Amino acid sequence: MNCARCCTPLRLLLTVDTTEWDGGSGSWRPVEEPEAWGHALAAPTQVVVGRWGELNLFACPADPAHPHAWSIQ
């Protein structure tokens, strides 16, 4: 994505994900919680973005006053 004002490529500023880890397949789990399993344990904050996706917020590196951009995946 490019900045709407100056066309500079935007940089990822923040990602808000629905889950901390993949609660479905178990492909990754925290070392501190080896027995944890399922989506309820993978999403302790209970924040749901879209349909279990993630929100990415981008900022312009040339001027922080330029508008931010976002995408949901």
Score class of each variant (00 low, 15 high):
Ala65Arg: 13
Arg29Gly: 02
Ala4Glu: 15
Asp17Arg: 12
Thr18Arg: 05
Pro30Gly: 01
Glu33Cys: 01
Met1Trp: 03
His66Asp: 14
Glu54Ile: 00
Cys6Pro: 05
Arg11Ala: 05
Pro34Tyr: 09
Ala62Ile: 02
Cys7Ser: 15
Asp63Lys: 08
Arg29Lys: 05
Pro9Ile: 08
Trp52Gln: 15
Cys3Val: 04
Glu20Met: 04
Arg29Leu: 03
Pro9Tyr: 10
Leu57Lys: 04
Ile72Ser: 10
Gly38Leu: 06
Ala69Phe: 06
Ile72Arg: 12
Trp28Ala: 07
Trp52Asp: 11
Asn56Met: 10
Thr19Phe: 10
Val31Ile: 08
Glu33Tyr: 04
Pro64His: 06
Ala69Ile: 01
Gly38Lys: 11
Val16Gly: 02
Leu13Arg: 12
Cys6Gly: 11
Gly38His: 08
Glu32Asp: 03
Leu10Arg: 04
Cys60Ser: 07
Pro61Asn: 09
Ala69Leu: 15
Arg29Gln: 03
Cys60Glu: 09
Ala40Cys: 06
Ala65Gln: 11
Leu41Asn: 01
Asp17Thr: 07
Pro64Tyr: 02
Ser71Cys: 08
Arg29Thr: 02
Ala62His: 10
Leu10Ile: 09
Leu14Trp: 01
Pro9Phe: 11
Leu10Ala: 11
Asp22Thr: 01
Ala69Asn: 06
Ala65Thr: 13
Thr8Ile: 07
Pro9Arg: 13
Arg11Leu: 11
Thr19Cys: 10
Asn2Thr: 15
Ala36Trp: 02
Thr8Pro: 01
Cys7Pro: 07
Gly53Trp: 02
Ser71Gln: 12
Arg29Asp: 00
Arg11Cys: 05
Pro9Ser: 07
